[in-house]
Amino acid sequence: MTKKIGLILGSTRPSRISPSIAAWLQKTMAQPDLTIDLIDLAEINLPLLDEVEIPSTGIYHEAHTQKWHQLIQGYDGFVLLFPQYNWGYPAPLKNALDYLYKEWAHKPVSMVSYGHHGGFQAAQGVNLIIRGLKMRPLTNNLQISLNGADLDDQGHFIDTDQALAPYAFNAQQLGAEFSHVLAD
């Protein structure tokens, strides 16, 4: 039976490179028993958390929250893809995670951070959040260090496959880990 993984793009900046990384991950993580869908927070466009009830109640009044709930509850696991901004994670990712609670609980999750130093500090912060949401952190998490020589004048990859080649084995292992964890 095919399992669904939601690959959440945690950056909404117009100049972001996360769509390139996400497409590469989607291809590189591929497994016969997994469907990996891209979930772009720039397209979801959630306002700052505006629900009256706390998310753990599962009572959602706003149409955008109900739509987000429907989308997220349909996934078996998640990859959170995010850059490091000033040693932290992007606010839209935190906001999107905070909107829900039960929908995240007990689902496997991996973090793929990126930045000029791999996004280590951002990953530490997100790790606390996913634990608070009772998600199941996987052992395979990527920290992609951006190399200026791989980027053009606009900060986009010249050749995404070449730039991310050092991370291919770990991305393949991540796909295999999802397959194993969700095989039950």
Rank of each mutant, 00 (worst) to 15 (best):
I72Q: 01
Y99C: 04
S145H: 13
P47N: 12
N86K: 11
V79W: 00
Y89R: 06
K107I: 14
T28A: 13
L93R: 10
L97T: 10
F169Y: 11
I21Q: 05
S15V: 08
Y89I: 09
A168T: 14
G74Q: 04
W68K: 00
Q31K: 07
A123E: 14
Q26G: 03
M1C: 06
A22F: 09
L146N: 05
T160A: 10
D37G: 08
Q173D: 05
P92G: 08
E51P: 10
L142N: 08
M29S: 06
G77N: 02
A22K: 11
T12A: 07
K67P: 01
N86H: 15
G10Y: 03
L81H: 00
L41R: 02
I129T: 15
Q121L: 14
I36T: 01
S18W: 04
G125T: 07
L174S: 05
G74D: 12
D150V: 02
L71D: 01
A22N: 08
I158D: 00
D76F: 03
L142K: 03
I130E: 06
A30L: 14
Q26A: 12
A165R: 11
A171Y: 07
G10T: 04
Q124W: 11
S113N: 02
Y75P: 05
P92M: 10
V109L: 07
P166W: 08
K3Q: 13
D33Q: 15
